[in-house]
Design a protein around this nucleic acid. Structure first.
Length: 526
RNA sequence: GGCCCCAUCGUCUAGUUAGGUCUAGGACAUCGGAUUUUCAUUCCGGUAACAGGGGUUCAAAUCCCCUUGGGGUCACCA
């Protein structure tokens, strides 16, 4: 048997991080078994704009490197892969159910059904369908139809049956059919409902394993009944836990983003994200892009490897040790058997840690390729292809070392790209290190003279020079180094000071010292 | 409320199927310390969990029951 799994997104305009985890598990199970992974678009409820709303979803798959064997763009033997284009299949299946007497036309007014439901609830009684339309004779039914009386089609639930599944994650789960209302399978306009279309398609596409989030568990008995009624072989089920928001068991949701902003576990990620996004021209406060969406991580400069690793470890583990997995290792080692049952909260800190790990493994050339677009978007460089620019960026990346966890972290080193007059000063520390200490400005002036004449403006001689200078002046290096750093980078801390000086170059360093001295003097005067 | 699911450090998890090797392991976070005259990294170390109650058993985190708690879902949405 060839394993075939599917992921069936609705075109919503964005890819949910939790949905992505579900998709990843589907994909991994298919690949692990050398089977096929199918993308099917559940757009029965959509009108236009399917293309626009689908784009970000396909982009997310492409970005993470999850390919699909059948589906949009690639087609396949069971095309089309949009439910909106498969109507004839549903119509035929509907007719089949009706002909076999396994479904019936329900002429009951929706309000009546609703009030029965409410009455049952009030009386603490289980609600099941009245089936009033079931007693109608063929003639009566035909008459009502001829009159144009609206009806829905309901599956006739075999009330004495039980549905038992052997779920790959949850084990045996069972439902008593006597407690189930007859589910609607077709609306009054004849269009199929989710549960029905899904079953028809899962069978038609020969899906062997339905792997989906556990929120679908209550749909399962209905779908099993539908499979049976249509004479299909039921697929195997695996209901995986949904992705919860950090530190909770609540399903992660796009609408709760304001709440997440105040969640301490989300703090570092938001800080990082806000900082990067504001530089690349995206409003960090807007909910058009948030950590609930896969695109967020891409825009902030995460690696697919980092996101993938974080996702796979959410609800799945190999053993008591392994944390890091490449995609191909995941394919090799993933099994449904080792998926956990309980909901797993997204852990942004751990995600950042996975990310940092894979970034540190990334070859320099790829780091460069990743950082360039960020600098370009922020207007910090002009031409990504210019050899000199690339060389400079490469040097900065090398200097930054593991300070770059996401590509957007390159902005931490923006002093290497901004013009001198636009260098932002960390005012608080500038006050403390340069403006307030009496001797600081004089010291900087003397230092400037030395820097002006030093023959070899590279890290090691510069280090020796500074060291000697401090000794000579009888001051602590702690009084000189930080002040100099503030003057030339605007920051209180950062990458190696001497390599920074070398990379900045003599002219730049001298100019920035002058500017800082001027700034300090005017602040002292003021 | 009905139905269903879940329950180990703050978080992600190992251990539960085949009870003993678990004085409960790892990772992230956190706190200390070392290295780096900054920051980051790296390295060492610390704090920290079997929801509660009953059984079964020589022995229970592991099996059974109850309680509590958390969650999902209850549409002519998907």
């Amino acid at each position: 048997m060839t394993v075939r799994t599917r992921f069936a997104p609705s075109p919503t305009g964005y890819m949910h991080i939790g949905g992505m985890r579900t998709a990843l598990f589907c994909w991994l199970w298919a690949r692990h078994n050398r089977g096929q992974f199918i993308l099917r678009i559940d757009d029965t409820d959509q009108q236009r704009n399917v293309d626009a709303a689908l784009g970000p979803i396909l982009d997310a798959f492409r970005w993470l490197g999850l390919d699909w064997d059948e589906g949009p763009e690639v087609g396949g033997p069971h095309a089309p892969y949009f439910q909106s284009q498969r109507r004839s299949l549903y119509d035929a299946a509907l007719q089949q159910l009706l002909d076999a007497g396994k479904a019936y036309r329900d002429f009951e007014a929706p309000e009546d059904t609703q009030s029965q439901r409410e009455a049952a609830e009030k009386e603490k009684r289980v609600y099941v369908s009245s089936r009033a339309s079931l007693v109608l004779s063929q003639e009566e039914t035909a008459k009502l139809m001829a009159e144009g009386r609206p009806f829905v089609v309901r599956l006739l639930v075999p009330r004495t049956d039980k549905v038992v599944i052997d779920d790959h994650v949850r084990g045996q789960v069972e439902w008593d059919c006597s407690l189930m209302p007859d589910p609607v399978v077709a609306r009054s306009d004849g269009s199929p409902l989710y549960n029905f279309a899904t079953v028809v398609d899962d069978a038609a596409l020969e899906i062997t394993h339905v792997i989906r989030a556990e929120e679908h568990l209550p749909n399962t008995p209905i779908q099993v009944l539908l499979h049976r009624a249509l004479g299909y072989k039921t697929p195997e089920w695996a209901h995986i836990p949904y992705v919860a928001s950090p530190g909770s068991k609540e399903k992660m949701s796009k609408r709760k983003i304001d709440k997440y902003r105040t969640n301490p576990q989300f703090q570092k990620l938001f800080e990082l994200g806000d900082q990067v996004l504001s530089r690349v021209g995206i409003d960090p406060g807007s909910d058009a892009l948030s950590p609930v969406m896969v695109a967020y991580y891409q825009q902030v400069g995460f690696l697919p490897a980092g996101v993938l690793n974080a996702l796979v470890r959410l609800g799945w583990s190999l053993d008591d040790q392994a944390e890091f997995f490449t995609l191909s290792e995941m394919v090799q080692k993933f099994t449904l058997e080792r998926v956990i049952k309980s909901a797993a909260g997204l852990d942004p800190d751990k995600m950042l840690n996975f990310q940092a790990h894979w970034m540190s493994e990334l070859p320099a050339e790829e780091k460069l390729a990743g950082c360039l677009p960020f600098l370009k978007k922020a207007g910090l460089i002009d031409d990504e292809n210019d050899a000199a620019t690339r060389a400079r960026v490469a040097s900065v990346i090398d200097l930054a070392a593991d300070r770059i966890r996401v590509f957007g972290d390159i902005f931490q080193l923006d002093e290497f790209f901004v013009a001198d007059e636009r260098l932002k000063m960390d005012d608080k520390n500038f006050q403390k290190r340069v403006v307030k200490p009496e001797a600081a400005v004089d010291l900087l002036r003397d230092l400037r003279k030395r820097l002006e004449v030093v023959t070899d403006f590279t890290a090691t001689p510069l280090h020796d020079l500074l060291q000697g200078f401090a000794g000579e002046k009888q001051v602590k290096v702690g009084d000189v180094f930080p002040a100099l750093r503030l003057c030339v980078t605007g920051k209180a801390q950062g990458a190696d000071l001497f390599r920074s000086l070398e990379l900045l170059g003599r002219d730049c360093v001298l100019g920035r010292i002058d500017r800082a001295i001027g700034l300090a003097e005017s602040q002292r005067a003021g």
